[in-house]
Design a protein around this nucleic acid. Structure first.
Length: 292
DNA sequence: ATCCAGGCCTGTG
DNA sequence: CACAGGCATGGA
């Protein structure tokens, strides 16, 4: 990445940075906790911190942070070590990806917190994105930790310990997670117990990590791929949801198929960049309503 | 009203 | 192994 870092009080400024468009990154479906503000900046809670991100011309301004947190947390969170020019150059050889990349040219794939991804994508099953976001906010508010950096209150995403002690009925009634309540508590318990060590997945392949994650209640083929891609940096993961199914059938298969076939097809044509391809395609398809 | 949403689980053939 | 049907919830 070619950019200059400027440190001001409470801010880190990334000067002249490419491949970083907040709207694309935060609204492409990989993250559920970024809220757009009136000034078009975005705010989230992650790693126990509140962070605001604003784009001004070709600069990105990170507010309520400092150089230590930037180096220790946000540099990796925003995947700043990766050369997106190279990825886009390779994927653009495919004419359909070329269009999708033009549409979401500023997408980056974040490296988010494993437990939060596990629960968030369990919550996503047969659900709608606005409802998923609402349930995640409610879980954070009721089971997370309060953070007050200024005038406003924020809540961190709950720990496995805290969620393992929640009652499924409460998750349903208070957090509106529906039938996913039991799965959330059971999975939180397995992780809180240490029965499954999420950190071990960093050192596994996609297939190995997938096999392990799918032992968790509520985690199947699609949810596991999301967790592997959005938390564990497995770039060959290719989550196939209704939108990816639609866009792949519309542009590539030209017929009605099934998610399993699309998964193998995606792996074959996109290879070790499948995760990036999926994210460009998902954003493109959902924003434009392709195949619906 | 019926259908559907970033699917998964369980039971059947 | 493939394939239904069910599942909470609420907006279209």
């Amino acid at each position: 990445m070619k950019y200059n870092i400027i440190e001001e009080k409470g801010k880190i400024i990334l000067k002249d940075i490419k491949n970083f468009e907040p709207k694309h990154i935060f609204e492409c479906g990989q993250a559920f906790r970024w809220k757009v503000e009136e000034d078009k900046s975005y705010t989230t809670v992650a790693y126990g911190k509140v962070l605001n991100v604003k784009k001004e011309n070709d600069d990105i301004i990170l507010s309520n942070t400092n150089i230590e947190d930037f180096n220790n947390i946000w540099y990796n969170y925003f995947d700043l070590d990766r050369d997106y020019d190279e990825i886009k150059k390779e994927l653009s050889k495919d004419p359909i990806l070329d269009e999708a990349i033009k549409f979401g040219e500023g997408i980056r794939i974040l490296n988010q917190e494993p437990f939060e991804m596990v629960i968030s994508f369990i919550t996503s099953a047969n659900n709608q994105i606005p409802r998923i976001k609402r349930s995640i906010e409610l879980m954070s508010k009721h089971y997370g930790e309060k953070i007050v950096p200024g005038e406003q209150e924020y809540y961190s995403f709950p720990t496995a310990e805290n969620l393992s002690n929640a009652k499924p009925e409460d998750l349903k009634e208070i957090c509106k997670v529906g039938f996913r309540g039991e799965r959330i508590v059971q999975t939180a318990r397995i992780i809180a117990n240490g029965e499954l060590d999420l950190n071990s997945i960093y050192n596994l392949t996609r297939d190995e990590g997938k096999e392990l994650l799918m032992t968790l209640p509520g985690v199947g083929p699609k949810v596991s791929d999301c967790i592997l891609l959005f938390a564990f940096n497995k770039d060959d993961a290719f989550p196939v949801d209704v939108w990816v199914k639609r866009v792949m059938e519309h542009f590539y298969l030209k017929e009605d198929t099934n998610v399993k076939l699309i998964g193998t097809h995606g792996a074959r044509i996109f290879g070790n960049l499948a995760g990036f391809a999926q994210q460009y395609l998902f954003y493109y398809a959902r924003e434009l309503g392709i195949g619906k």
